[in-house]
Design a protein around this nucleic acid. Structure first.
Lengths: 146, 146
DNA sequence: GTCAAGATTTAGAATAGTTCTAAATCGAAG
DNA sequence: CTTCGATTTAGAACTATTCTAAATCTTGAC
């Protein structure tokens, strides 16, 4: 299993790109594959390094461009968990991020509550929810007690 | 009404700082006052500019240091809403941020749901919730229809 | 097929946001 | 009043992101 192993995914990518006015390109495909293959909420820099493995000539700016295109066409989410680099996540289900402030690990947890019921400022048109829970993962919580 | 108008607040600040092992300093007081006085979720740079008005000699690094101290002693929250600068918020109630992706305005809305009931990874020790809702504010939503 | 127009990619420069460093200063405890 | 650690400073350094101009590629019109 490697780049473009899944032609269904590729189909989907092409479709989503074009409905948002973007072209399908090999660069966008590789970047998307990288994000799908290791879902550890990589930064743009991480994605750059990983994409270089199968596509050594790709440039920094292109990775940002591809990531922005993927975000705009709804295949990838941006996640801001700390000061510093933005991370990227291909899980488009409603879910929240449990973030360990000590070791930096991120856990996805599906959202059960009906977020549409949350009170909101009058007239506000919701696009998406961005829920982060900060704290310590089980491992770090155990260590910090010692 | 100006810097240190409220001695109760100052008392509170001194207390909170010292229980976290920090000293009370005029710089920290000014920075905290700036954040309390205009609650528009300023960036560190905004805080720097505003603090300079009453304390022209303050340096960039000190603003970051003061903000970090205030965050560590639980008087101020960091908020990550977009790529780029972190914002700061003195509202320590459980609340979420409605963020207009078009004009950048931020609205605080108190949280009603009991977040303690949310499912979480086993063993995860929650420190705080960070809930952002992206979309368009009433004004921008109206404009975008035209 | 050929060409023009527009989209994409590139390297590298530029900018923004944050952290680091070493020296100077301050303040509390003895 | 001395000492030690905390705080502050200016500015350098570093990290993350965006911009720029030129080159390349794709698509659609002919």
């Amino acid at each position: 299993m490697s780049v473009s192993a899944n032609s269904k995914t590729e189909q989907h990518l092409t479709e989503r790109l074009s409905t948002s006015g973007f072209r399908f390109t090999p660069h966008r495909q590789h970047v998307y594959d990288v994000i799908l293959n290791k879902r550890d909420h990589p930064t743009a820099e991480d994605v750059f390094i990983r994409t270089k493995k199968t596509m050594p000539e790709i440039s920094h700016a292109t990775v940002y461009n591809c990531l922005d295109a993927l975000v705009k066409c709804g295949l990838v989410r941006q996640v801001q968990l700390e000061r510093g680099a933005t991370r990227f996540c291909p899980n488009m289900e409603e879910h929240c991020h449990y973030f360990c402030d000590n070791c930096g690990e991120v856990f996805d947890v599906a959202l059960r509550t009906d977020s549409a019921l949350m009170p909101r400022p009058p007239g506000f048109k919701v696009d998406h929810y961005d829920i982060a829970v900060h704290g310590l993962c089980a491992e770090c919580a155990a260590k910090s007690k010692k």
